[in-house]
Nucleic acid binder design. Sequence first.
DNA 1: ACGAAACACTAAATCGTATTAGTAGCTCGG
DNA 2: CCGAGCTACTAATACGATTTAGTGTTTCGT
Lengths: 339, 339
Amino acid sequence: MNDVARAAGVSQTTVSLVLNDPENSGIPQATQERVLEAVKTVGYRTNRLARAMRLSRTDTLGFVADDIATSPYANRMIKGAQDAAWEAGRLLLIVNTGALDRPDHGSRERAAVEQLLERQVDGIVLAAMFHRVIDPPPALAEVRSVLLDARAEDDSMSSVVPDEYEAAHTATRYLLDHGHTRIAHMTTNYPSAAPKLRLAGYRDALLQRGVTPDPKLEVTGISNTPGGREMMERLLRLSTPPTAVFCYNDQAAMGAYQAAAAHGIGIPDDLSIVGFDDQELIAADVVPGLSTMKLPHHEMGRWAVDRLLDESDEPTHARMRCELIERDSVARVTDASSS
Amino acid sequence: MNDVARAAGVSQTTVSLVLNDPENSGIPQATQERVLEAVKTVGYRTNRLARAMRLSRTDTLGFVADDIATSPYANRMIKGAQDAAWEAGRLLLIVNTGALDRPDHGSRERAAVEQLLERQVDGIVLAAMFHRVIDPPPALAEVRSVLLDARAEDDSMSSVVPDEYEAAHTATRYLLDHGHTRIAHMTTNYPSAAPKLRLAGYRDALLQRGVTPDPKLEVTGISNTPGGREMMERLLRLSTPPTAVFCYNDQAAMGAYQAAAAHGIGIPDDLSIVGFDDQELIAADVVPGLSTMKLPHHEMGRWAVDRLLDESDEPTHARMRCELIERDSVARVTDASSS
DNA sequence: ACGAAACACTAAATCGTATTAGTAGCTCGG
DNA sequence: CCGAGCTACTAATACGATTTAGTGTTTCGT
């Protein structure tokens, strides 16, 4: 900036004024143009470190994720957060704390927050790769921060999560609307917030239509493709198997597809299936296309960053609606399949 | 730091010395402990902005990606880069420039680099979500930088890409080793660096075993699941269909699976398939498991960051070996299937 | 007992910006 | 012709670290 000042024959103050507040700085047009000219010839570029130091504001946000690598949701959340940040002129400093089952996960998380605070970020998004209740590192309290796809035990921090209950309710009602009454629910044995809420939504939807939930139709397992295959096998061995299945995620649904195929059971004619996630590369591409609940990861990422940047100070908690993506895996129940 | 100095009854210089170079600063143990004590009680944390300003080094690297959202590879590359950065005590400032077919992509890319330079990053990784030749923004020259999964037209910048030719060669040889000679190659019509190299690797592998490439077995289409389905249909309509197919990616391979299933063709007994990518959620989960070439995205991400941090100055170009992941989609050719 | 070397520190400059408090020079009303 | 007010600027400071160049006090060899 001093170079520019010298080149334009003015003081550094004037350059700063012209660059930041040209309107009401009281610097005449002629001088402004001279300064702008000098900026170009010198090839000047703002040094945001110095700026940040003076303003105690870095226009940079931290994003700590527990496991980018294995999660197919990470993309969408990061993208949503990044988009919101970019539009507001902020950049995202991303740290990946690594798989959450590692013994040192807690300390890595603390170290990540520490690094971000040392770099004076204006706020921090702490993102979980699946919806759960966490115990956030205390240092987070020193800066504006938001929990993404997670809630604090005591709800002391702002957070945004999908509305799991409502989504499961919608998915189940969708099957009920197609005439199904023997609707199974394939859930996960992984202890987190989501499966409990979805199970509740599923049960309530049934009850509200006068269908008594049958414990035999609630199967638990590992929510991936082989797990889904295995759970579906169990359901098919029941004396009266379900005519429809609501799966914990699209991978499990893909397993259900495979088990059905192995038994010569046609989808959707003999069996209707609803998934969860709208997983890229699976949901739309499987045959027939999988009807599924889309988690609003992108919107959640956006919300988290927007929340960081708004003025309000008391913690707020958002539950985001999930969208039902209709494809071809659900059919009206037929007499043949219910017999 | 001044607060710490006051609390410990020393000068701010002493605090800095104790914190940064305790060994040979010539400050006696007693004083050091007093300072460290004060650091704790005051709750001091380094302000890296000030530090960066003094040292003209931010310990922060930029990572600009062209489209995080839709790419399943982004995860792995970001994770690899992030891991390498974290281990070296650096953090990653990530910018997503958005889909690359948008008309303003170029200007968004320039703006991203500009933002990173204003924030004084020590280096920039420019990542493409699929291997191609690009024209990097000129401003990149102002800082250490590396192209990830991309090359500059004139090779003026360091870059790291997968060894596509060798990978295709390996995949094809793997099928040849199983006795196949009518080996098809399903490629993409998307113009980028990868398909050309893979086609060359495929052809050369055949030639080296005395098999003349048959143009009818080289099919082009859209490399996703429906596209793979359609390309497989075309191959099956040939008078002598292939006994094995090498697919451009796992999605196309999944399409091939579907087409085969629709025609009652068994994999691997009637048809062997090799994919590309080792796509999460697909390759391992499809039945039978898909044998595929795994792209070293994680290692490439690491390499890019390591390259940014090493001393050397002249551009270097790395080609990374891809790994063959053997599953169950390839069988020895039988008389029945070759008839 | 005296000068030199070692010890234990510290004052001050610097990095690049934003901002506050001025300061010359001019205009203009009375 | 004087001073108030405006115009067009600028000097100096602060942000929080690192680092250079000292400075005052001991220790030690002779």
